[in-house]
């Protein structure tokens, strides 16, 4: 009896849910998977245009972009030119902050061969691992990303079998299987730091979105391609203990007359305390990023 009823209703539902008009058939078959495939095809096409990491370019190439544009920007680029020599662009795929940070940091280690800095950051990385564990992340979800970053760190130090050249570092930074994994490592570290110090970050997050700290991490930190904000930068800088300078290039003009370019130094919490590496005096960031609304590139000081 019940079964009979069911079948009858079933028939009705079938005709109601299926779209009868034939021209919609294609749309019915056009599922999310197709949309995602299309997205990745578009991304691949864009990738042809700008690699994850560009070549070092003189600052004049930045000015060239705005030749027929805003006079304020051109003025500011001129001011930038007094302090900075070159720019290295990154792809604008939402991961640009992390990719810029990755290359800048590894390049710094490669050039400075600062063993004590490597030891220091490794200790921080271990701390980050513990943070994630204590937050309930299963090891296997993040350990591959940690391992890949530590591998890069070892390979930029010279004098061992795995050592790599500057050219090789560039190649790796352009290789998706390395670059994306390191970006994801930073995303885990950033998320862990934010959640560990949730009460500190909460007001900033509320200022950005209407989400809880956990929602924010799940939706705006951990997924690839989610853009970084000052919250992400603060958290990453704190977690790894690496100061970051961000130079802002936008159309805002200051009070009267002279154009100046603002920058902000993200200095890790507690870094004014003397530490083992001995660089306790004054923290001056060795990573400088250029921020234009929505995008980060790497800047090279003179």
């Amino acid at each position: 009896m019940q079964n009979q009823d069911g079948v009858q209703v079933d028939g009705e539902v079938e005709s109601a849910t299926s779209v009868p008009t034939p021209e919609f058939d294609e749309w019915a078959n056009f599922g999310d998977q197709d949309i995602m495939q299309q997205h990745s095809a578009i991304r691949a096409e864009e990738a042809e245009k700008i690699p994850f990491l560009g070549d070092k370019e003189p600052l004049s190439s930045l000015a060239a972009e705005y030749q027929s544009g805003s006079a304020i920007l051109l003025e500011k680029i001129k001011v930038l030119g007094e302090q900075y020599a070159a720019i290295r662009r990154t792809r604008g795929d939402g991961n640009c902050f992390f990719r810029s940070f990755m290359f800048s940091y590894l390049e710094h280690i490669l050039e400075s061969q600062d063993q004590s800095e490597v030891d220091r950051i490794k200790a921080n990385v271990e701390q980050c691992r513990k943070t994630l564990q204590s937050l309930g992340y299963a090891d296997f979800t993040f350990e591959d990303f940690f391992a890949l970053f530590l591998e890069q760190l070892d390979s930029v130090l010279q004098g061992n079998e795995a050592s790599i050249s500057h050219d090789e570092l560039i190649l790796r930074s352009r290789d998706q299987s390395v670059s994306d994994y390191v970006v994801m490592f930073f995303r885990f570290v950033t998320s862990g730091e934010i959640r560990k110090r949730a009460e500190f970050f909460e007001p900033f997050i509320l200022g950005l979105t209407n989400a809880t700290v956990e929602q924010f991490c799940k939706s705006s930190v951990e997924p690839m391609g989610e853009e970084s904000d000052h919250v992400h930068i603060t958290a990453l800088s704190d977690a790894l203990g690496v100061p970051i300078r961000v130079v802002y290039l936008d159309r805002s003009s200051c009070d009267t007359g002279g154009v100046s370019v603002n920058h902000h130094d993200f200095v890790p919490a507690g870094s004014d305390l003397p530490n083992a590496s001995g660089c306790s005096e004054k923290v001056s960031p060795f990573i400088t990023l250029l921020y234009r609304p929505g995008h980060y590139d790497i800047l090279y000081p003179k």
Binding site: T17, S18, A28, G31, D32, Q33, M36, Y137, A138, F140, T141, F142, F145, M184, R187, F188, S191, K218, S219, E222, P223, M224, G225
Partner: peptide, 22 residues
């Protein structure tokens, strides 16, 4: 859930995915 194909509309299977999921 799509009645015919069984496809699921869930953010973590699309843009909110991250390797933290299993």
């Amino acid at each position: 859930v799509h009645f015919k194909t069984g496809e699921i509309c869930l953010d973590i299977l699309k843009n909110a995915w991250s390797p933290a999921w299993t």
